[in-house]
Amino acid sequence: MKRAEFRFEIVEDLASADFIFDAYGRTLEDLFKACATACFTAITEIERVEPSKEYNLMVDGEDQNELLYNYIAELIYLKDTEKSFFSYFEIHIAEDKKSLTSIVKGEPISYDKHVIKTDVKAVTHHRLNITERDGEFVTRMVLDL
């Protein structure tokens, strides 16, 4: 069976106040996309978020782990300042894995249209460590709610 380009699995067995998931991607870009999708899945029913408004992001980081941390932090910042949810993430990571550009699409938060689950306060470094396993890029991620 062909595996999806990206996916994530929620970790339920830790008695914590956080949102914990394992993310998988065929490429590093797909892994980042999995984490971004998981982040907004924690907040809302992402299928209902129309990609009607576009944002261009540039993010740096000392290495690929930092880059992922900074990317998710940037999306959380954008959510709060634009008061919007996002559902489309196009990501291009530089060869040295120290910077990326991303096109992010979404729409303003609507309590009539969107299903609100919770808010994500911050991304954490806990267990954030990108590795390659069985031809996939993998990491765990903990979001503080």
């Binding site: 000392e62 930092e66 932090a73 959380i76 910042y77 306060k121 911050a122 470094h125």
Partner: peptide, 17 residues
């Protein structure tokens, strides 16, 4: 709120180095 969350995010990052 977001003000404190962002300060936490910023400093966790800069404290690494």
């Amino acid at each position: 709120r977001g003000f404190g969350h962002q300060i936490g995010t910023d400093y966790l990052q800069s404290f690494g180095s």
